[in-house]
Nucleic acid binder design. Structure first.
Lengths: 339, 339
DNA sequence: CTGAAAGCGCTTACAG
DNA sequence: CTGAAAGCGCTTACAG
């Protein structure tokens, strides 16, 4: 009978230890600490239990709780990458709200390039209560079956709960800002990424320029990175009648546009205006500082988690949209012609 | 007797279902799927079990496994922030290795500013097997008691397992590069962060400049951010005999140094050389591109996790050091005087 | 080679 | 108001 040697000695107190310390039964401890005691346990007993738990430094065993309840109190945050500056804050916001409700967050980079697991007890999505999916295609969630999910910055057309950004409004604000400065020939350096958020940006910009008397829109696409963006911007600037302003799908692409301008000896903003999108840290590190649309990334994570918790609680949360804000800095000015 | 209504119907097959499907006992299923069957279960039976599991789409219940084994297969990754560009890749590397061994990674931002939890079943560090702590003080681990931990880019003097960067060598490489270009008056724009990695950088630079005939080192400190760094750099450049090169503790600080130079009408690199540290994405977004030391962040996360897994397996892993690599780009050149 | 059984630490219907 | 007991789904010593 060496049963006790089977399980590594964790020395952590259990609810049974607390019960012994408080002189009550284990079920009473569970009731009290679970907050379901009112009307069922006397206040004096409840206090005694709490004091005993405190003395022993008792913390419930999550695994046991999860097993019993059939839940995990864990949420999967699916992001296309954690390396891009945008998604760190999303994670931070999600964790902040989750922690407040006793939930943990596991970040999962999608598409998955971590390769197959050695063990059959692998992927974190085997043991989660819900999914927070950022900038993902709706159908990518199919393989997760009926797991409650909230889509972030994604197509609101589907049936899934969503928290979005006002990307179309943001893009229109940029267009209006440039139009007011006098720009008519606009170049769109677009992300070659098949996501709703970028399609929405392109569509909003196209609509705005189409509504502008004399407005001309040209477009070039690239991967989200400085060098590809530089090339795409250079292609637009090499046209016979080049744009006087480059609207970029995100701040990183704008950094590439700066480089293209410099390579051609063009000054930003006197020869060329450039705008970004997102307002990540990079935007103020660049010279001149970048005119862009600020998207509240941390708030997206926080509200997304709040909506997911509502969903898990049986609610039917309404769609939320977080507005983007135009931040005018030094990278935009009147075009050379009307200066 | 409505027992079955107690637990939410997950409809997931259990090992008992697999046993029924395969016509064997539940313990046999566990043995086979746990990989401990050789010599105890006939190959034919084992195959039958595996086929049944496949047919049913069986995945073991982690909570039950954790409860039984007293482990969680979860590792906590503690980082000072996920918002800075450096730590995303560390997380990515850690997840890559962890997933391969059936471990999950929960990122935990330290110091903790998420506030207290509403529920007593809160902080993720109540249910983890090990800790990966990046750029942290050794004593911050104290509250986690005996939990196995690996320190990343931290003081190797302690007793904890560590995976480090060759930060001192990296700093010496920068100093040598600048010395060779002809610089003698060096300004150090140092991070005002009490971490071993920055102390090591400062010490290495001081040593290198001290060994340089005619070498003069001045230093100014700042928070890690563009604006504070700009101010700190400006202070150094306002000295009567200003440095001809600014050595910055990381790339973000270097971005601030660029701004200070521009505000004074100084060209980088013809009037002032600037160097960074880390080689994050920002380094090539800047103009001119930044001479810096590349630290393999993703590899730090990956090797850190490998060491932690070794530790959890009962090993006594040796300290590992990942070398930094000097990357010479456009921000360094000979000082004006000897041009 | 295979199965019956104990037990990990909880939550909660049920009986007093 | 309180306790004894079942059971969540596993792993593993033990008995055949």
């Amino acid at each position: 009978m060496r049963r006790e040697a089977q399980v590594p000695a964790t020395s952590r107190p259990t609810s049974r230890d607390v019960a012994h310390e408080a002189g009550v039964s284990q079920s009473t401890v569970s009731l009290v600490l679970g907050g379901k005691w009112t009307g069922r346990v006397s206040p004096a007993t409840a206090r005694g239990v709490r004091e005993a738990a405190e003395r022993l430094g008792y913390r419930p065993n999550q695994a046991a709780r999860n097993l019993r309840l059939g839940t995990t109190r864990t949420v999967l945050l699916m992001v296309p990458t954690l390396t891009a500056p945008f998604f760190g804050p999303v994670h931070t916001g999600a964790v902040r709200v989750a922690a407040r409700h006793g939930f943990g967050v596991v970040a999962y980079v999608w598409p998955d390039d971590t390769g197959p697991a050695d063990s059959p007890f692998a992927a974190p999505h085997e043991a989660i209560d819900g999914i927070l999916a950022s900038s993902m295609a709706v159908d990518a969630l199919a393989r997760f079956g009926g797991t409650p999910a909230v889509m972030l910055d994604s197509d609101p057309a589907g049936s899934a709960a969503t928290v979005g950004f006002g990307v179309a409004d943001g893009m229109r604000a940029i267009a209006a800002h440039l139009a007011e400065l006098g720009h008519r020939r606009i170049g769109h350096v677009a992300a070659a990424v098949d996501q709703w958020t970028f399609r929405a940006r392109a569509q909003a910009l196209a609509g705005a320029v189409a509504g502008l008397p004399g407005g001309v829109l040209s477009r070039s696409t690239c991967a989200i990175g400085v060098t590809p963006a530089k090339d795409a911007a250079a292609r637009l600037l090499a046209q016979p009648d080049p744009p006087t302003a480059l609207v970029c799908d995100d701040d990183l692409i704008a950094a590439g546009a700066y480089k293209a301008a410099r390579a051609l000896g063009l000054d930003v903003p006197s020869d060329l205006s450039v705008t970004g999108f997102d307002d990540v840290l990079l935007a103020t590190a660049l010279e001149p500082e970048l005119t862009t649309v600020r998207l509240p990334a941390e708030e997206l994570g926080a509200q997304g988690m709040a909506v997911l918790l509502e969903l898990l609680g049986g609610g039917r949360p309404a769609r939320r949209v977080l507005p983007g804000e135009l931040v005018v800095r030094g990278s935009t000015g009147p075009p050379r012609a009307i200066r």
